[in-house]
Nucleic acid binder design. Sequence first.
DNA 1: ACGATGCTTCGATAGCGATCGAAGTATGGA
DNA 2: TCCATACTTCGATCGCTATCGAAGCATCGT
Lengths: 228, 228
Amino acid sequence: MNEGPNIAQIASLIGDPARANMLAALTGGRALTATELAAIGGITLQTASSHLSKLEAGGLLAQRKQGRHRYFALADEAAARLIETMMGFASSRGHLRYRPGPKDPALRKARVCYDHLAGDFGVRMLDSFVCHGEIVSDGENLSVTDKGRAQLDAFGIDLSSLASNRRPLCKSCLDWSERRSHLAGTLGKALLGHMFDQGWARRSEESRAVIFTPEGERKFLLQFPIDP
Amino acid sequence: MNEGPNIAQIASLIGDPARANMLAALTGGRALTATELAAIGGITLQTASSHLSKLEAGGLLAQRKQGRHRYFALADEAAARLIETMMGFASSRGHLRYRPGPKDPALRKARVCYDHLAGDFGVRMLDSFVCHGEIVSDGENLSVTDKGRAQLDAFGIDLSSLASNRRPLCKSCLDWSERRSHLAGTLGKALLGHMFDQGWARRSEESRAVIFTPEGERKFLLQFPIDP
DNA sequence: ACGATGCTTCGATAGCGATCGAAGTATGGA
DNA sequence: TCCATACTTCGATCGCTATCGAAGCATCGT
């Protein structure tokens, strides 16, 4: 017994409702201040501060001081994937906590996951890349083919500028609403950023939803078709 | 706030050290009795019983009565994947709890994950399938090609008999020691079972390790080669 | 320099849950 | 039938931690 990594430690960090709410909110990719996170968790600032320092010590969060504000964000993409994985499992077991509202369908359609596109549109985009042979997958890691490189170049994304030693270019990330994978990594981030730049879509102010313009949606479906 | 699945509930289930130890032990795929699990968790039978009923209510465990024994096992493969994912994250953050010993290298080399092969050998096997075009991956799910079907047939595994409506044939599962994917699903199970049947390897009695015979290891490396 | 804002630290409280002893239920064997 | 084994349920205890008030520290604006 007692072999291997200590999962109880991080699980208990996520296991507190206030902390879980904060983490879920940070899955939206935006860095939030301690005051904002306290409101999200439904607790006072003092309590939130205690929680946040524990989460940081546990390697789930990273903080950045900026003036008198302190911004908190998920430590990295692996942390975001862990949270999304747990969401997927929880929803598959019926551990739901829905407060059904108009935002829900929008979230399922398209939302931000850390810094890339998730939801129905995110899954479709990766499907399109794969079924056209622009991205291939060897197990967990994805890689871009020459055909994909040319396609992305035409779309306006320069792969060579995305190279990073700290973070993989492509990574698959399990989608909790679709239960399939979407594209993460620096390429996933760049693609979402490009869509924002092109005016195809914008972020919702109060949730993780990504709202496409009618024109943007048309162009998205044209750019990432799915053939049988 | 408060949207989406309730991750705090399952996270707090895993967050208790005694429960985490039990779950980690069950990742070995064997069903264990309440008494055995109590010993693993380092608690009395009464406490263990309370824990086990909570884990079952949370959808993580399934129990099977057999005479006066009650066998507990992970509910399904998704539960096993969740635990392995958490192990991967925990070890990447240095949340280790090693009791270094001779078993450790054996576990990294080859071990059981639920009912399929994990560790260095598990990752190698999937790599071999993929780099020979016998299995292709479209995002999360893997699928066997015609070439792969023939290869497996020659190896002695009949794919058509593995079809199941309850569980996918192929699934990728993240390996906590290698941080790469290995092959899960009914095919992963069948492959490991076949190796046991052929006498290539056997299970360790006291841990999750899979111990290959020298002859079995030679045949394994020959059967699942990796070319550049 | 001074107050205001954002956040952390300290200290005390309160409540939840892990734990175990004791008693109760079910199954198997003699 | 009677005892032993395997497990669950009940009840009480105890420790841990989430929580918040109050005070302290840092930064910004003026």
